[in-house]
Design a protein around this nucleic acid. Structure first.
Lengths: 351, 351
DNA sequence: TTGTAAGCGTTATCAG
DNA sequence: CTGATAACGCTTACAA
């Protein structure tokens, strides 16, 4: 039903080897023969079977992407960066996301073996050594946002520590010394690094860290709201809040507004991530722009590098994130609304 | 370097056929033999090569996803739905997005042939007959949001016409008769259907359509802003605005606010898409919730259906979209802020 | 229950 | 420049 190289060869009156040479652009085929082959192929609607091709060449030109069950902006931006880089490098994507359980992830991994030349994995759950155990074959792997305790894998991480430190230093520079943090999910690596950056900036400025200023959170808007509720009960309340992500910062803003407090007048607030809504909050939210799409792109670029050269040196790449100073930290005067920030999210493609 | 079925067979002292039987769960292998094989495989770190497997079985358990260069919520929601459905059905995803030019799309298509069992394509650009020409082999295909003039492919579309019509009818029910539309990108199928729904609702209510109430747009916030600027110059200005997507509706809200007009008091506004920010706008935006993730899921489900049974009847599936009544249309009293709506978009997985 | 051997559709290695 | 022919790693009749 579906034409193979043999059919084309027969119709063109040549051998399969010649047809193969034509389609693999190997050269060494006479002009006339080449045309005859292409004509026959067109007539039959022949396209080389990539599976068979990659079986013999042992190259798939595919990279496997393993993601946990994330969603929203982070997910799409990451894939965008990955896809763009992959396309530029001539690779395709075998995607498997939605993995919350180890068994699912392991199964996905198995499915990919033999189908991909390399793997990009974002797995906040599973420790590198667990992954190593699941990867019997020696296949190139790049980890995104991984704790990278050991040096078993190449990694590409957002420099959460540095950016958090810079943000808190920025607040200190604005005159704040009673700075609270609303932390991300415990045991999350990003959350951990942002906390570390917060503490480091305070330390560098000679400000002692205070346990009662380190509020728990889980990256949700509700957590930000709750943390502020708790915070306002304190006698010596902070003059600034460093939220570990934008969602919590926005929850914090909401609570502060409800309590009649002025931001940044009474209390400054900063976020982390740079979600579109941050610019649209009122006051607009000072935050850290995490270059998610570059994160994905760099992971792919590193992987392709591994694929091309048999360079077996493990590299830890840190992607820098930059501060976006807006109104909520008090560095800028308050303006009711920021510029256009809503991405065109209709069913339309990007114009 | 990488162990094959032969290596396992040799180590276990059996034939490759037996090893194959063990790993393909075909049964008919003695318990002791089975264990010996698995032990050998574990020692060697063997995993079946999926490429070789699918070459002989001519089943890949992969479906190809071809997308244009979209981004943001739409993109991630679509993939989410696709991925969930695919996983449930036991299929994997070969993804290729970022296609703005025909040549890119064609190349991507070729890359997939032989690697996938079927295709899900979202291509607002290319007409079905062009696709048919690019698909020489008879491979199952489901089109998402396609004009579907002919009946060459199965399609899964959002019922834009119906939802738009319902929304405008809702405005009419609230007493409006001078209703403007801010259209989406010309030549975009969704935009076209929403316009058709708008006109249909007016027609059904016996309200004549007026060309001067049909403003151009391109789905961008700026376009919504510009359209309202233009609109306010008119003597008999509309009492309601039906924007063809949320981004434009929010642009419209911004312009109206700047002009000192009250929404919905002076003029009602509605959107389309149901982006998260719509709930967070002030006043909160009445809109149409487009079930994007279900759109993707249904496309996959239909495709898997085609794959399993050789049912060659083409089906046009319409996914219904529902109205989300909030404040901007005037049906509800104005409250300063809606409930928590910001998704957790941090690097953290969905909790 | 197990082994032998013939493919799956392609590319690669030789000869010619 | 072209054609046999042997892989690639696996599954699957068919035999034993």
């Amino acid at each position: 039903l579906i034409p193979t190289i043999k059919d084309v060869a027969r119709h063109a009156g040549v051998s399969t080897a010649t047809v193969s040479r034509v389609f693999s652009r190997a050269g060494g085929v006479a002009g006339g023969t080449c045309e005859r082959v292409q004509e026959a192929a067109r007539k039959l609607g022949y396209t080389p079977n990539q599976t068979a091709r990659s079986l013999i060449t042992s190259k798939t030109c595919c990279i496997g992407i393993l993601l946990p069950d994330l969603y929203g902006d982070f997910y799409s931006e990451l894939i965008r960066g990955i896809d763009q880089a992959a396309q530029k490098e001539g690779y395709h994507l075998l995607l498997s996301s939605m993995h919350s359980e180890p068994a699912e992830m392991k199964a996905a991994l198995k499915m990919m073996l033999g189908r991909v030349d390399g793997l990009v994995i974002l797995s906040p759950h599973f420790k590198p050594h667990v992954l190593r155990e699941w990867l019997p074959v020696r296949i190139p792997v790049v980890l995104i946002n991984s704790p990278t305790m050991g040096i078993e894998f190449d990694t590409v991480n957002v420099d959460n520590f540095d950016a958090a430190s810079k943000m808190v230093s920025h607040l200190i520079g604005l005159g704040h010394s009673r700075i609270a943090i609303i932390q991300g999910t415990t045991a999350n690596f990003d959350a951990h690094e942002r906390l570390r950056g917060y503490r480091s900036a305070l330390f560098k400025a000679g400000i002692p860290t205070r346990a009662e200023y380190e509020f728990e959170g889980d990256f949700s808007e509700a957590a930000g709201y709750a943390a502020v509720t708790e915070m306002l009960k304190r006698f010596e309340r902070p003059t600034a809040i460093f939220a570990a992500n934008d969602a919590m910062a926005i929850g914090a803003l909401k609570c502060l507004r409800e309590q009649g407090l002025n931001v940044p007048g009474d209390i400054a607030v900063t976020g982390f991530d740079g979600i579109p809504m941050a610019a649209y909050a009122s006051p607009s939210l000072t935050t850290v722009d995490v270059p998610i799409s570059r994160l994905g792109a760099m992971a792919v670029e590193r992987l392709v590098g591994l694929l091309k050269s048999k360079d077996h040196q493990k590299i830890r790449t840190q992607v820098p994130a930059e501060l976006v100073i807006r109104e909520s930290c008090g560095a800028h005067p308050y303006r009711p609304f920021d510029d256009s920030v809503i991405p065109n999210t209709s069913t339309q493609e990007r114009s």
